[in-house]
């Protein structure tokens, strides 16, 4: 139940998705920060550990006395661990690593179910996120919980599929991948900022965090990938057909999910909504959901052959 133990649990189960599950949540952020921030202190250890088979090392080895080098190695490793501690302390201040771990606590069954839900949300009944002792249950145990694994993977896949689509039209060049990624990321940031601003303006009391919003707006990449791939396979009609289906499903999905988060309790339970306040929130929910199809079309239409 503890979000910290989520990845460990995900790792235990043998599955095809296991490797990508572990990499974004655990390996990447830590690896990234360890490498960039402690590179100077790690340098000493790196030489002895990695470059020992290198040509230059034997001469150095004979040059340095044996106890001297062991001492240097110990000194280097203590420096490295000290640096790691400092970095770990400072990372948590700027990036909530423990919170992010919660969003990557997924497993294969969850990912499959969630993708199914994104493609066909009509039959799903219970949209309430479950809580346990004031902590939301990890995505592995609750299909309604927002995760970041699907958005991140879908984002990367979208970039690659976009490159593929441009490649089939002989429009591909390596820098176009970076341009696509930068553009998609910029639009994502704009969308999240716009939602945050409107939530602030309407003074919604909600437990939606910024990471939640990133997760929810990241689910649309799944539909975009489906649209582009069908455009590659079946041409323009396939693209429009499947993209509009995905737009419809993501619209329903977003409304049903955000309704519980944004609207007040009474409205969420289906009681008649009265008052300008609730009406405004309802419009806001609709607007956020209606934003998704626009972005989906805007980010994909230039990739399809005309």
């Amino acid at each position: 139940m503890n979000p910290d133990s989520g990845l460990g649990g995900g790792l235990r189960q043998p599955s095809k998705r296991r490797v990508p599950t572990a990499s974004p949540g655990m390996a990447d952020p830590h690896q990234l920060f360890d490498d960039t921030s402690t590179s100077t202190t790690l340098l000493g250890r790196g030489y002895t550990a990695q470059q020992s088979p290198a040509v230059g090392y034997p001469t150095q080895h004979s040059f340095l006395a044996e106890p001297m080098s062991t001492f240097a190695m110990a000194y280097g490793s203590t420096l490295a661990s000290q640096g790691k501690e400092i970095v770990d302390k400072n990372i948590d201040r700027f990036i909530p690593v423990t919170k992010l771990k919660y969003y990557f606590a997924v497993d294969t069954v969850y990912v499959g179910k969630k993708l199914g839900l994104l493609m066909f949300p009509f039959m799903h009944q219970d949209w309430q996120v479950r809580y346990q002792q004031d902590m939301p249950v990890a995505p592995r145990f609750d299909i309604n919980a927002p995760d970041l694994y699907i958005p991140v993977m879908a984002f990367i896949t979208y970039i690659l599929v976009a490159g593929l689509a441009l490649g089939t039209q002989n429009r591909f060049s390596p820098d176009i991948l970076g341009l696509q990624a930068s553009s998609a990321l910029a639009w994502l940031i704009v969308e999240v900022l716009a939602i945050l601003l409107s939530l602030y303006l309407v003074t919604v009391n909600t437990d939606l965090t910024t990471i939640d919003l990133v997760a929810f707006s990241g689910y649309k990449y799944v539909g975009m990938i489906v649209g582009i791939v069908s455009g590659l396979l079946f041409g323009k009609t396939g693209y429009y057909l499947l993209l509009s289906w995905c737009c419809l499903t993501i619209f329903i999905f977003m409304i049903r999910t955000l309704r519980l988060k944004i609207l007040s309790e009474a409205a969420a339970e289906g009681v008649l909504v009265r008052g300008a306040k609730n009406q405004l929130r309802m419009y806001l929910t609709m607007a956020i959901a209606a934003l998704q199809p626009l972005f989906m079309y805007w980010l994909t239409f230039h990739l399809i052959r005309h």
């Binding site: 341009l179 930068s182 553009s183 990321l185 910029a186 639009w187 940031i189 704009v190």
Partner: peptide
């Protein structure tokens, strides 16, 4: 001209 991170900044 694409809308990139630089234009966002």
């Amino acid at each position: 001209m694409a809308f990139t991170l630089y234009s966002l900044l």
